[in-house]
Nucleic acid binder design. Structure first.
Length: 355
DNA sequence: CACGTAACGGTTGAG
DNA sequence: TCCTCAACCGTTACG
């Protein structure tokens, strides 16, 4: 599949089947929801299916992350190097040990938990294939530090890691001439610290207009760059950035502790490359002459606690807090304020009742 | 009408 | 290198 063009949904929005929505849209959904705008209105305004809005909001409420989950790949194997190492040690310590005994010991020693402990047959296979002759020098990592996640449960490990030089979109981005693309990715994410609010994040030119960064030609509206946001979290782990330090030590695209970093806490991230799709022929998200940043830069949230100036909101989790629940579910007719919010977001009239 | 969700067809990427 | 398969995606349709 070379260039993937988006499809158009019933609302006239562009999407790519199988691929996540751009983070900008995801952010916008969350932001509008925080403004008290109803999901159905968000759906219509952003032209994203209500199912998707529902899903994204549900995920956000649950995890605090706007990011899509990690797509593709396989579960980490249970037979991690660490496990193999331990099995070997057990075997060395007691050559007559049974596989089931090894299994018990793995559990007892906390090497594995009940969810990721290898089966007896797996252990047998490990003994046979990987350990076999104990006198053999081990092709595994005798001294090498096993992945720290080795004993973690699956949910916590999705160790995506990309090198700086490598763009997950690399192959596809080949269509984009020149190398500045990768640099753009880096610079974008590095540029985050200057954007402290969702609004700014949404609005900053750097984010919305890759061309502004990459300085490349008509590449501008392509959404590939959104991937850079996703990619900032190579190490997926628990919610709300609990293990942030661990990540930050590791990540290739450090996510500054800005607002967005909490919007996109280290949830399993998707190295998504939303290649050019959303700017596709139907490109309703980023239409020529209607770049979001033009509106978003001035996106403000009139007279409410949601007024967001750069740096105002350091803890987007405040957004997440349901303390504003009272503000939610406004009366069905949107308030003027909400209309303004919507309009400022998309620059389109709010098609509340029409298709 | 609003919303939650299952089904669906799709992509992705580790093994 | 190619294949498999299980993860995720957003849309659609239904209740």
């Amino acid at each position: 599949m070379e260039q993937t063009y988006g499809e158009v949904n019933q609302l006239g929005g562009v999407f790519v089947n199988g691929r996540p929505l751009p983070n900008a849209i995801r952010l916008r959904i969350v932001e509008l929801a925080q403004l008290g705008i109803r999901p159905c209105d968000i759906s219509r305004q952003l032209r994203v299916s209500h199912g998707c809005v529902s899903k994204i909001l549900a995920r956000y409420n649950e995890t605090g992350s706007i990011l899509p989950g990690a797509i593709g790949g396989s579960k980490p194997r249970v037979t991690t190097p660490n496990v193999v190492k331990n099995i070997r040690e057990y075997k060395q310590g007691d050559p007559g040990i049974f596989a089931w005994e090894i299994r018990d010991r793995l559990l007892a020693d906390g090497v594995c938990d009940k969810y990721n402990v290898p089966s007896v047959s797996s252990i047998s296979r490990i003994l046979r294939n990987k350990i076999g002759n104990l006198s053999q020098p081990n092709q595994y990592e005798s001294s090498k530090q096993p992945p720290p996640q080795a004993a973690l449960s699956y949910n916590h490990i999705y160790p995506y890691s990309y090198t700086n030089a490598m763009s997950p979109t690399g192959t596809k981005m080949g269509s984009s001439p020149g190398g500045p693309v990768t640099a753009a990715h880096v610079s974008i994410s590095r540029g985050w610290p200057s954007a402290h609010t969702v609004s700014n994040i949404l609005g900053i030119r750097a984010f919305m207009d890759p061309a502004a960064i990459a300085g490349t030609e008509g590449y501008a509206p392509k959404m590939e760059d959104w991937g850079s946001v996703n990619r900032t979290f190579p190490s997926a782990h628990t919610v709300n950035g609990i293990d942030k330090s661990a990540i930050e030590a590791d990540i290739k695209y450090p996510q500054p502790s800005s607002t967005l970093s909490s919007y996109v806490p280290a949830c399993a991230y998707s190295p998504s490359n939303q290649y050019g799709v959303y700017s596709g022929p139907a490109g309703s998200y980023v239409t020529p002459g209607h770049h979001w940043q033009s509106q978003s830069t001035s996106l403000s949230h009139p007279g409410s606690a949601m007024t967001m100036h750069g740096g105002d909101i350091h803890s987007p989790m405040a957004f997440k807090h349901p303390s504003r629940d009272g503000d939610r579910k406004p009366p069905s007719p949107l308030s003027k304020q909400q209309h303004e919010a919507l309009n400022s977001v998309h620059g389109l009239p709010l098609p509340t009742s029409s298709s």
